[in-house]
């Protein structure tokens, strides 16, 4: 099967520091991929490079066969690649509902009417449990609610590939289950998902395949049970 996302030889340096080295990764359409790795191993940098927030130094990235390397982030979003930011970056002067309105207005293939925007926005907020906060400002939300908003805003872009960067940090067990369920449902509707997460319970419950980064390199890629038993992965986590 042709890969939806195809990353080849991706490299990124910050000055003299190599954050990512020669990463190869293919994600099939409809797949659920978990991406793990110790703090500072380059997971978020990887997301930033393929979504265009950062420019990578080497390698090539394609989505559905289309080369992304020269495209600005908004065009990648419109092609169906949406991401959440690890540290939530809400639009502070807009309400929670209006935060979703931005991708609903801009990222979709078709132009939505006012009423459609409102309806879809409310449905998404309902899915992440923020329906009753629609009229509030992001700063009135808790950290956890802001994470949910971040995820909902990425979902509002109507992606083919959704990358959730630590959407569950700080959530209670019940809330983690809720978000995992939500992502599973989304995947059931055909959305390919990369989940970056430190909460192993969630990653193991969610992922069909697991990839592990250590110090900017991909050290393991395979079935989740096998990857967590991989000696290099174990060493990286125990060595922390």
């Amino acid at each position: 099967m042709a890969a939806l996302l195809d990353v080849q030889g991706l490299g990124k340096r910050f000055g003299g520091f190599t954050a990512l080295a020669d990463i190869d990764l293919q994600v099939a359409a409809g797949e659920r991929l978990g991406l793990i790795g110790p703090n500072g191993s380059g997971k978020s940098t990887f997301v930033n490079c393929i979504s265009g927030t950062l420019r990578h130094d080497s390698g090539r990235v394609t989505l559905g066969g289309q080369l992304l390397d020269a495209l600005p982030p908004h065009q990648r979003t419109r092609l169906g690649l949406a991401r959440s930011f690890q540290l939530p970056r809400p639009f502070g002067s807009l309400t929670v509902a209006e935060n979703l309105r931005v991708p609903l207005l801009y990222a979709g293939a078709t132009k939505l009417s006012d009423a459609e925007c409102r309806e879809r926005g409310m449905a998404l907020l309902g899915q992440v449990g923020l329906a009753d906060k629609a009229a509030q400002r992001p700063r009135e939300l808790t950290q956890i609610e802001q994470r949910k908003l971040e995820l909902a805003r990425a979902m509002a872009a109507g992606p083919r590939l959704l990358i959730a960067d630590e959407s569950m940090a700080g959530l209670s067990n019940a809330e983690v289950d809720e978000i995992v369920d939500l992502l599973l449902r989304l995947n059931g509707q055909g959305v390919t998902i990369i989940m970056i997460e430190h909460i192993m319970r969630a990653v193991m419950a969610f992922s069909q395949r697991l990839v592990c980064f250590v110090a900017g390199r991909k050290v393991a890629d395979g079935l989740p049970e096998e990857v967590v038993r991989n000696p290099e992965v174990e060493r990286a986590y125990l060595g922390e």
């Binding site: 927030t53 979003t77 809400p90 639009f91 502070g92 931005v102 801009y106 990222a107 509002a156």
Partner: peptide, 10 residues
């Protein structure tokens, strides 16, 4: 509010 987040939102 946040230019990078705006880009990411399309």
């Amino acid at each position: 509010d946040d230019e990078a987040a705006a880009e990411a939102a399309g």
